[in-house]
């Protein structure tokens, strides 16, 4: 279609896919990635859907005053902002320190096996 492939990632020979996909390095990458993000997914889904469900069915609970006129609901809303920002920073660090190096190993190996 276009030569856009050259702009994003390199081409490798068709046959090399099979070996690359089954390489031990790639399995380690996938396992590490899922082990890192599944706990984070659980945290924000529970944190945010918990807030949404309480907003619907726990209106009394969210109305409990915590600090002056500020009630538990607003504290949990603020908590969702903090949670999202912390997860963003943690994921960025895990990616840069652990996942990206693993990707580089896999890519180098695939290229060596059949790429340009």
């Amino acid at each position: 279609m276009t030569d856009i492939a050259k702009l994003s990632g390199a081409d490798i020979a068709p046959g090399a896919w099979i070996d690359s996909v089954q390489s031990a390095e790639f399995k380690i990458l996938i396992d590490t990635k899922w082990r890192s993000i599944v706990p984070m997914i659980v945290i924000y889904v529970v944190g945010y859907m918990g807030l949404s469900v309480l907003a619907g069915f726990g209106r009394g609970i969210l109305g409990v005053k915590v600090l002056g006129s500020v009630n538990l609901g607003f504290v949990l809303i603020a908590g969702n902002y903090v949670m999202s920002w912390v997860l963003a920073v943690v994921y960025a660090r895990i990616s840069a320190n652990r996942l990206d190096p693993l990707v580089n190993v896999v890519v180098d190996k695939a290229r060596a096996a059949g790429g340009p």
């Binding site: 492939a5 994003s8 990632g9 390199a10 081409d11 490798i12 020979a13 068709p14 090399a16 896919w17 099979i18 690359s20 996909v21 089954q22 790639f26 990458l29 996938i30 990635k33 990707v103 896999v106 890519v107 695939a110 290229r111 790429g115």
Partner: peptide, 16 residues
């Protein structure tokens, strides 16, 4: 799907 997953995670694409 193995090839798809590989490309999803690495950005490498087969020239086929």
């Amino acid at each position: 799907f193995g090839e798809v997953t590989f490309r999803i995670q690495t950005g490498l694409r087969s020239n086929q």
